[in-house]
């Protein structure tokens, strides 16, 4: 009987606490949304990395020449590379 009472008590405490914590999380979330909208309304644009990416994709002319020579040798001059991309 004592255990039953203790577990019932724990149920009341437990469920009340879990509900309270999640209610607080909900209202905290709402508060944060309002706060962020007020103090930091602009989302920072991600830094333009496209140029860096394309720059890093540029293949060294010497390497390109070497690749073309290899292809030419392997295909007896019938083929050549039109585009070389770094993967």
């Amino acid at each position: 009987m004592e255990k039953l009472f203790e577990s019932l008590q724990l149920m009341v405490i437990g469920l009340t606490t879990v509900f309270s914590v999640l209610l607080l999380v909900i209202y905290l979330g709402k508060g944060l949304i309002a706060l962020v909208n007020k103090i930091a309304p602009e989302e920072e644009k991600p830094k333009a990395v496209a140029n860096n990416v394309s720059a890093s994709n540029v293949v060294d002319p010497n390497v390109a020449q070497a690749i073309n020579m290899a292809i030419s040798q392997l295909t007896a001059g019938k083929s050549q590379a039109t585009k070389i991309e770094r993967i």
Binding site: L32, I33, V36, N37, A40, P41, E42, E43, E44
Partner: peptide
């Protein structure tokens, strides 16, 4: 309304 989801 979400103006800055990242900071949030």
């Amino acid at each position: 309304e979400f103006k800055n989801l990242r900071v949030l």
